[in-house]
């Protein structure tokens, strides 16, 4: 969509229709969410540096378009199974940033009362069934959610998000096959950010696109530009329609890139600074979407510039909330194991 920083005219034409149909408010909210996600992640990294965070975290800076495009294509009542690099997905799903931040720093007011932390944030009330510390951990669970939807005869769908690395766990294959044979309303969204920790996709796969694995399970498989929120939106929307029609699951591969290290301590010896810079400078999802919306006249330059400040304010408030929140009391340690 972007070549050497220049927006191509045919791209504007291609997107004209979808921009018209989504309308300015919706599109502005998408861009604002991308900024908020980035601001959350940047602050998360900063808090980590200040020693306020115990444990680890996985930042999704550079991957905001996938999160925002995917969640916005679904409806209230749909289900989300998230993965370890999941702050962005959680925010895009509409979860409360204050309670996320509180969980991130282990406070009682956090989504999981400080028991889960970054890797386990869940917002069950909004059918966000949680991030997962286990690679591909959520993928077989999607089969169960899909079965449940089918048995309860609702119009819901379940979106399960996982990385490129997860597609090489055995559970991935069992899950896709089961969802296929039972025509379950599941959207498999593989967020291919080019690496599984230090393992590049070129070494972990001999196929060009992970989406081709859909062929083995006789379901649709598409690869989209994961740094383009509209491309992700359209693919997820189509998969959701298919799922709601009772036609079964789809596999969507969203190609994107992680700017930061895998987790807190990563020297990144497996890639070059040039490679990272190229993605940041040429294909940054926020820069691209912002340029698209301003060029298309959906937002003014001023509005677009103000979104970053707005995001920082949202995050400042979330930090103030979590700072003012109590830590869990040790006397409550044994709570919550059994129902």
């Amino acid at each position: 969509m972007f070549a050497n920083g220049q927006l191509q005219p045919e791209v504007i034409r291609r997107y004209h229709e979808v921009i018209e149909s989504l309308g300015p408010e919706f599109l502005k909210a998408m861009l604002q969410d991308m900024h908020t996600i980035r601001a959350f992640e940047e602050r998360a990294e900063q808090l980590y540096g200040l020693g306020k965070v115990h444990g680890t975290m996985h930042l999704s800076i550079g991957q905001e378009a996938t999160a925002v495009g995917a969640s916005n294509a679904l409806q209230d009542g749909d289900y989300l199974l998230n993965h370890h690099r999941g702050h962005g997905h959680c925010l895009a799903w509409g979860s409360d940033v204050n309670r996320m931040m509180a969980e991130f720093v282990g406070k009682e007011t956090g989504y999981c009362r400080g028991r889960g932390g970054s890797m386990h944030i869940a917002d069950v009330d909004s059918n966000n069934l949680g991030a997962n510390g286990i690679v591909a951990g959520g993928v077989p669970i999607a089969v169960g959610v899909g079965l449940s939807i089918k048995m309860r005869k609702t119009q819901q769908v379940c979106m399960v998000i996982f990385g490129d690395g997860a597609a090489n766990e055995g559970a991935f294959h069992e899950s896709l096959n089961m969802a296929s044979i039972w025509k379950l309303p599941v959207i498999y969204l593989c967020e291919n950010n080019q690496y599984a920790m230090s393992m590049p996709v070129q070494k972990a796969f001999t196929i060009e696109n992970i989406s081709t694995r859909a062929t083995a399970y006789n379901i649709p498989g598409v690869t989209v530009d994961g740094n383009d929120p509209l491309a992700v939106y359209l693919a997820v929307q189509e998969a959701a329609e298919r799922a709601r029609r009772g036609d079964g699951p789809s596999l969507i591969e969203s190609k994107t890139y992680r700017y930061k290290g895998h987790s807190k301590s990563d020297r990144q010896a497996y890639r070059t600074r040039d490679e990272v810079n190229e993605w940041m400078e040429q294909r940054d999802p926020i820069m691209r979407f912002s340029a698209l919306l301003t060029t298309a006249g959906v937002v003014s330059e001023d509005e677009a510039n103000g979104m970053r400040d707005q995001a920082i304010k949202i995050i400042d408030d979330a930090v103030a909330f979590s700072d003012a929140s109590p830590a869990p009391d040790v006397s409550s340690l044994l709570e919550g194991v059994y129902a």
Partner: peptide, 12 residues
């Protein structure tokens, strides 16, 4: 203790 390991530093 007969519980999963909690995240919060003090609980852990």
């Amino acid at each position: 203790l007969d519980i999963p390991i909690p995240y919060n530093r003090e609980l852990e």
